[in-house]
Design a binder for these strands. Structure first.
Length: 504
DNA sequence: CGGGGAGAG
DNA sequence: CATTCTCTCCCCG
């Protein structure tokens, strides 16, 4: 019933257009219950290149605080304006943000705390005895190896088999899913001799793998440099499929192709057709993309084993062909177009796929269109102002952020630099050596948490060493505190005001 | 570019 | 909790 939607963002890429697009991606009534947030790139323009002191924990902590406050603002706005609740994880890359975002569901946010690195050389990562353990490692180590995004079923299986000293673990009963003996990231990471090279041997089959070993080694060390992708206006493919007990005759196949084809046409209409209200031509529709290719794929059931056991196979076979142009005709009925498509294209493709007369025993059929060519258009590539409708006057507040780490003038806003939680308080950012108090489920020491959608709780403000540039009184999206006059991004104001209200 | 494998949700 | 469905990315020939 609930649909999980995870939105991941990298602040450096975030502009108002991105935000708007993110929300557009939601269908009406899709509740957001996952929202992973990556604060990796919050940094000032003014960070002197090569200044090592600024890349210290202090700066990292400041970034995470900003990310946390920003996430809070986003979640609050989202709930107020759209009625969606959400969960956020704040860390320095997508992997970590996503994993830590699993902590306080369905409505909360969690920040993965520093230290993120070992004290000494990076090469000691896999040898904790050499230095103070990174919180990243401590955090990620506890996960089951198969739970790491990017490590899927096959890869996890190979890793488990290796770590469990060779003999494949027999998972009786369940063909699928996790094994009883769980192998954690730590088990893999600390396996004698483990490293990229060993992973190469474990994972590098004759088949298909390249760079996988390096990627996996990075993942189990919390390293993930993949970029957040721009959201696309149109999908790269649209497909529809159904599974069957058994499909054996042409009559059955045609009947199902009719169903699938009709669905696909409808999907194309809803997903690729847009109102053309631009000109004085009534309310016409126009295609925003023209798929070029039609694909038909099937999944033949594997022929039954020697010993009679059913081998679960998900192997598909497919054929592609140019998508005939008549499908874009908006005058003819969908039914007639589908019929035409079946006769002219789908059936020939099917015969190519299955030359035999019948008895194919198909367990699945899928048809889809790919190779979507975007149909021209698209205006101002730049920064959309549309988000202003959602977040009123707060547009572009990211544009001129400054994060400085030195020479911060005395600021009544600043709170003590001690990040320890007070009894019964939930800091807006989960900084602290101890788990924050007052949570039902205590957090592991490496993660702070909060339930920031309840501003009635007392909180400790932690603006840290953050200063906002006050160029000329004219900072888009910045607001002035009525109490002390400090300028800050709109999203920080709430926390700031909580600070004023704190105590005598 | 088409056919597939792997993986995310 | 498992299965199904949809979509993406990437490799290889």
């Amino acid at each position: 019933m609930l649909k999980l939607i995870v939105v991941e963002y990298n602040l450096s890429l975030l502009n108002t257009n991105d935000l708007r697009d993110s929300f557009f991606q939601l269908k009406k009534n899709d509740p957001i219950i996952g929202f992973a947030f990556d604060a990796s790139s919050i940094s000032g323009h003014h960070q002197p290149p090569g200044d090592v002191s600024l890349s210290s924990d202090d700066l990292l902590t400041t970034r995470l605080i900003l990310g946390s406050h920003f996430a809070h603002h986003l979640r609050l706005s989202l709930e107020e304006e759209m009625g969606y609740t959400s969960t956020v994880g704040i860390s320095t890359n997508k992997l970590l943000a996503k994993l830590v975002g699993n902590l306080n569901k369905p409505k909360g946010q969690t920040t993965l705390l520093p230290p993120y690195d070992y004290q000494q050389d990076a090469g000691s990562r896999s040898h904790p005895e050499n230095g103070k353990e990174s919180n990243v490692t401590a955090f990620i180590d506890s996960h089951d190896i198969g739970k790491i995004p990017g490590i899927g079923f096959k890869t996890a299986h190979k890793l488990r088999n290796h770590v469990l000293s060779r003999p494949a673990d027999f998972d009786d009963g369940l063909i699928w899913g996790e094994t009883k003996e769980s192998v954690s990231v730590r088990d893999v990471r600390l396996f004698p001799g483990m490293g990229s090279e060993m992973l190469e041997k474990i994972l590098g089959g004759p088949g298909v793998e390249r760079g996988l070993a390096g990627k996996v080694w990075g993942l189990i060390n919390g390293v993930d440099d993949t970029e957040v992708q721009q959201m696309r206006k149109v999908p790269t493919q649209i497909s529809i499929e159904d599974s069957y007990i058994r499909l054996d005759t042409m009559a059955q196949v045609i009947k199902e192709l009719r169903m699938l084809g009709t669905s696909l046409m409808k999907r194309m209409h809803t997903d690729l057709l847009e109102d053309d209200d631009d000109l004085d031509s009534g309310s016409a529709k126009r295609w925003v993309a023209h798929p070029k290719t039609l694909r038909l794929s099937t999944r033949p059931r594997p022929p039954a084993n020697a010993d009679g056991t059913r081998t679960r196979s998900f192997n598909r076979i497919s054929r592609s062909a140019p998508l005939p142009n008549f499908v874009f005709n908006l005058k003819d009925s969908v039914d007639s177009l589908v019929e035409k498509l079946i006769q002219t294209t789908l059936l020939p493709m099917f015969r190519q796929l299955h030359p035999q007369q019948g008895g194919w025993n198909l367990s699945l059929m899928n048809i889809g269109v790919t190779n979507l060519l975007e149909a021209a258009s698209e205006e101002s590539g730049g920064k959309g102002r549309d988000i202003g409708k959602m977040f009123k006057r707060q547009e572009d507040f990211l544009k001129d952020w400054k994060v400085e780490d030195r020479d911060v003038p005395p600021d009544p806003v600043r709170s003590p630099k001690t990040y320890t939680s007070e009894p019964n308080s939930n800091p807006p950012v989960g900084i602290g050596a101890e788990p924050s108090a007052g949570n039902d489920a205590p957090d592991p020491p490496m993660a702070g948490s909060e339930d920031v959608l309840h501003p009635t709780q007392n909180t400790i403000d932690e603006e840290a060493d953050v200063e906002w540039e006050e160029d000329d009184e004219q900072l888009d999206g910045h607001e002035r505190c009525g109490e002390c006059g400090a300028m800050m991004p709109a999203f920080a104001l709430a926390a700031h005001e909580r600070f004023h209200g704190l105590g005598p």
